[in-house]
Nucleic acid binder design. Structure first.
Lengths: 113, 113
DNA sequence: AGCCTAAGTTGATCGCTGTCGATATGGAGC
DNA sequence: GCTCCATATCGACAGCGATCAACTTAGGCT
């Protein structure tokens, strides 16, 4: 995957002044992109929106009727959000309650600002 | 794609109070998710980071050596960013200069905050 | 003209993702 | 025990996405 070293620019007239090398961001970029990818679906974004606005734990049985997808599909989206560290869940008897973990969202928000 | 109406909840003991229906957000969620998906790749996120920090137009020939991908791949990423409305480009002779359009980023940032 | 060089496009590959139906898990209640 | 019900998981499918090599486009230069 090495880049071909075409950086010779022989004649003169460089196209622009050199850009700072963003190596400090490599690790952080992977984490931030993971979070952004998790938000990069309309259903998951709305799920986060509902969970955030409710500001408490929300039962899955209340989330499923809000979207035009099957229950397994919604469960899949919730798992994606949990794998990205954006939400967590808690079981109480038959029902499962989801809630937002604001940390990862805050980190992405900080980068955006 | 209709959801099976399993919302009968026959016995009693509702799992939680009903959640507000987020229909106002449907259209906006699609747009925001599109933006988030565009940021949801480490290379594109770093591209945006470099372009933002430079605060001016940056030549592609300066961007290519920063990443361990081929030039066509970087061109593909830049196209994705442009299609999402996050950047725009401008040709000057042989070179192409990219710059950030801060609007879409700001909208996502506003939603996060 | 002819060559070089920067950037974009094409075509192919391969892995990931969203979706569903079907099935499994596991608690509640009879 | 057995039966319902809520959620998760599995298997399969279609579509998208990241990547490369190869090629094309188009501007500068001699």
């Amino acid at each position: 995957m090495e880049l071909t070293p075409k950086t010779k620019r022989p004649k003169g007239e460089p196209c622009c002044e050199p850009v700072v090398y963003p190596d400090v961001e490599r690790e952080q970029a992977v984490r931030l992109a993971m979070v952004a990818k998790a938000i990069g679906d309309p259903i998951r974004l709305q799920l986060l929106d509902v969970l955030r606005k409710h500001a408490g734990k929300v039962c899955v049985c209340e989330l499923v009727p809000l979207f035009d997808v099957s229950q397994p599909t919604l469960s899949h989206h919730l798992k994606k959000l949990r794998d990205a560290g954006l939400v967590d869940s808690e079981r109480q008897g038959l029902w499962a309650y989801y809630y937002v973990l604001p940390e990862a969202l805050a980190e992405l928000g900080a980068w955006l600002a």
